[in-house]
Design a protein around this nucleic acid. Structure first.
Lengths: 239, 239
DNA sequence: AAGTGGTCTAGACCACAAG
DNA sequence: TTGTGGTCTAGACCACTTG
């Protein structure tokens, strides 16, 4: 990790542990330079990231004040894998793979920037139910491009797709676009999530891309309405 | 505006207008220095912002590639006022104020960082229905702290609260935390949005704060389920 | 080897807040 | 006036991609 990231982590942890409490000020930029032995711009990068993520608010002439920030967000927002999230949240979870099919053809409209000449692309399709504290709350349907991941072990789906992509294959996951909508539950939802007729689900569809800007995974995540929650921190864009 | 922001805007517009097309590369950082007459770090700030907002992906050794990015997001995400959004989207909208009450007491749990000694705070309460293409789609309930905005003209609610706060009062809106959930429609929802019994609404609750880190507005926004859509661009956090 | 982005530095000058 | 953050610069060195 670079210096700015190390300082970011250090400050973030100290905020999380109330070493720096909401409403108080962090050390000034000048002090941070001396504390960590860095140049000012390096420290400023760490502070800018903290501001971006809702930990501090910078006030000119005064300093960087710690603000109340969002808690962990379950289970969408950012790109964090289900397994990583479950570990942070300290909940008992289970991960049931109820569908696993290779060499499926997926319409490429799913992958927005793949080129128009193709109409379908071969993928591996994985269907999973996420069981949280004994209750099935989420269906995840993943479609992974065969051209990027030729052979997906079923064990990877039972553990964590992200861990497999990153740690085993060495893929560098860079970004994702997501869309959240509310839709009536379909038969599959009702069966897997044990819902009543007339129930609604929150649907999160996302396309995930690698560091070289290749989209490689399409995910449809369907959540029980009563368990769905999305938290966001947003800064006002200057005109 | 500073140089980095000017260059960000210029590049962003050129991407939006397909001067730089998805899949192609922007000029290199060295070239941007010469094109705009700036130092490299200044250009890099503009590029970092473009990457953050999903316009480009930077690839070491190669350059900054333009990626497909999200369209306008309706009607949450970021902090954009309803009026600003409606103008961008080019839709006919109407804004009906059906509730306006001053000197209301609001529990301060709403405003997370106000201090525990208080239990309620005086606010002005505004209720509005957003009518889009002739159809009532959204209820907005705003609660604005009287200590920050002592006297809110009803006309401001009929036009745009944000425009009033920023342009008339000179308040600097800095950031907001939001939470999205799905909830059964209540009587008020059914009446104002003309919903059937058993319908669901998407609820967005947010606290908005000023540049000096003071929270001053709590908003509850209730959306017709079938019209609700939230788009997000997220980058993977490095471990 | 040449070109690209990634990181870091030391210093300058400015704008704002507080005393 | 002093201390704070905001902006910008010119240059250094490194890591990666391509030929």
């Amino acid at each position: 990790m670079n210096k700015a990231a190390l300082i970011y982590d250090d400050l973030m942890q100290k905020i999380d542990r109330d070493v720096y409490k909401p409403g108080t000020y962090l050390p000034s930029e000048h002090q941070l330079c001396q504390l960590y032995g860095i140049s000012r711009e390096t420290g400023r990068k760490a502070l800018a990231e903290l501001a971006e993520n809702g930990y501090i608010q910078k006030i000119r002439g005064k300093g960087s004040i710690v603000i109340e920030h969002r808690q962990y967000e379950f289970p969408v927002s950012g790109i964090v894998s289900y397994k990583e999230l479950a570990e942070k949240m300290n909940v008992t979870t289970e991960n049931v793979v109820y569908g696993f099919e290779e060499h499926v053809s997926l319409p490429v409209q799913m992958f927005t920037s793949l080129g128009v000449e193709m109409t379908t692309a071969p993928v591996t399709a994985v269907k999973r139910v996420r069981v949280i504290d004994g209750e099935p709350d989420i269906i995840d349907k993943d479609y992974i491009l065969t051209s990027i991941v030729p052979k997906l072990p079923k064990a990877a789906a039972e553990d964590s797709l992200y861990a497999y992509f990153e740690d085993v294959l060495g893929l560098e996951i860079a970004y994702a676009t997501k869309e959240i909508t509310m839709e009536p539950a379909n038969d599959e939802d009702r069966e897997q999530l044990q819902l009543d007729p007339g129930a609604y689900v929150a649907v999160v569809r996302s396309v995930t891309s690698l560091a070289d800007a290749t989209p490689f995974q399409f995910t449809e995540s369907r959540h029980r309405a009563d368990k769905f929650r999305f938290r966001d921190f947003a800064r006002r864009t200057k005109k």
